[in-house]
Computed example of a mutant assay.
Amino acid sequence: MAESAKSKGKGSRNIRQMGYTDLEDFFLSLDEKKFRVRQVWEWLWQKHALSFADMTNLSKELRQKLGDNFTLPALSIHSTQYSSDGTVKSGFKTHDGHLCEGVLIPTEHRYTACVSSQIGCSLSCRFCATGYMERQRNLEFDEIYDEVALINEQCERIYGKKLSNIVFMGMGEPLLNYKNVLKAIERITAEDGLAMSPRRITVSTAGVAKMIRQLGDDKVKFKLALSLHAANDTKRNEIMPINETNNLKALIDALNHFYKETKNEITLEYILFNNFNDSLKDADELIKVYRQVPADLVNIIEYNPIDFAKFEKPTEKRMTEFMDYLAKNKVNARLRKSRGKDIDAACGQLANKTSELGKTEPVELKA
């Protein structure tokens, strides 16, 4: 398909920000037949056209009129890296020159897209590469849709399969881009979109209690993951500044509200840091939180080193002891081995290495 850019349309309005009825009104003003609306809609949301020139079953004249009235600022793939384990990391370029990253993660039974919701991040989590970047802006819903569509095209080309799952675990905090994330999921799950099941989508949050409650009020159908990483407020404040205004009690209350309203699956994510949150006392605190939340699963994640944080992965022995203690206390937990580490595509490593990072000082954890 043709390379995408804002200049592909001379108009000022993004055509994908329009609803179907709005497009009908526009075509009516041109005295065009109604079926043309359906053709354009399919190009935008099912055939993933990156420019009006791609819409080959429309007349040249009609494509010109679309270009005169609208823009189609689709994402383009800026760079691609391939891991030895089959993981693929892509750098996506926006129409205004920003970069964000997404990852295709293949396993034996799943093909998962890990997508970003913001360009950079404002939360400054101490262990996450994206947290050392400035937040440039939110991604628009159609840009998030492009990430999924482009990764799906990669999956079909490389593995001959469509995506089976989507996780919002890339760059940015999804719940601080609430409307665009929900609108993107609406289009991704729509029959006239990518038609993916919402049950195969997980939104991960660092913990914005107010918006977790809003998800419940909005009766969303996708799964939720909380990036916990420490199970007491003192330690969580140290590694995740957001906890200072969204403490564990507020998060526990919000998660219970979310589950009461939706009955959707909740996962707790917990990265193990050597001599910080990996003792049996830490495990006890994690168990206490787990028992207050209707969580289906605790994902214990091995730490992936980044340039700007002096954190270390615990020994295999220490991780095994931690996992065994959780099992002994009837916690449904699994140790998640990260993929794509050799291309900086693993959990916490997305950082747009082709762009400058805003902060460069290493951070050390206190024991």
Rank of each mutant, 00 (worst) to 15 (best):
A190Y: 15
S164Q: 04
V167I: 13
V167N: 05
K221Q: 14
A206W: 03
Y178V: 01
A231G: 05
T189R: 05
Q214G: 04
I252V: 14
V203S: 11
H229Q: 01
N232Y: 15
V167Q: 08
L163V: 08
G193W: 12
K210V: 13
I158L: 12
K179E: 14
K249Q: 15
E186K: 15
P241A: 10
A231D: 02
P174I: 03
N246A: 09
V208H: 10
L248A: 06
G172L: 06
A225S: 08
R199P: 09
K183W: 14
L228K: 00
S164T: 15
R200Q: 08
V208A: 06
L176R: 13
A254R: 05
R236V: 07
V203L: 13
K223P: 09
A206F: 08
G193S: 10
I212W: 08
L215S: 03
I242Q: 04
A230Q: 04
M169G: 07
P241V: 08
A195N: 15
E244G: 10
G172Y: 03
G172R: 01
N165G: 05
I239S: 00
A190C: 08
G216W: 03
M171L: 00
D217I: 11
I166W: 05
L248G: 03
K210C: 11
L163K: 15
T189E: 04
I188M: 01
V208S: 01
M240N: 06
K235I: 12
D217W: 14
L224C: 02
T205C: 06
R187G: 00
A209S: 13
K223F: 12
V181P: 11
L248P: 07
E191M: 09
N180Q: 13
I212E: 03
V167L: 10
K223A: 14
L224A: 00
F168N: 07
E173R: 05
V181R: 06
P241S: 02
A184H: 05
F258P: 01
A184Q: 00
V203C: 07
N247C: 06
K210I: 15
L163T: 01
A225H: 09
N165L: 02
T205S: 14
A195Q: 10
Y178H: 10
I185L: 09
Q214H: 09
R236N: 02
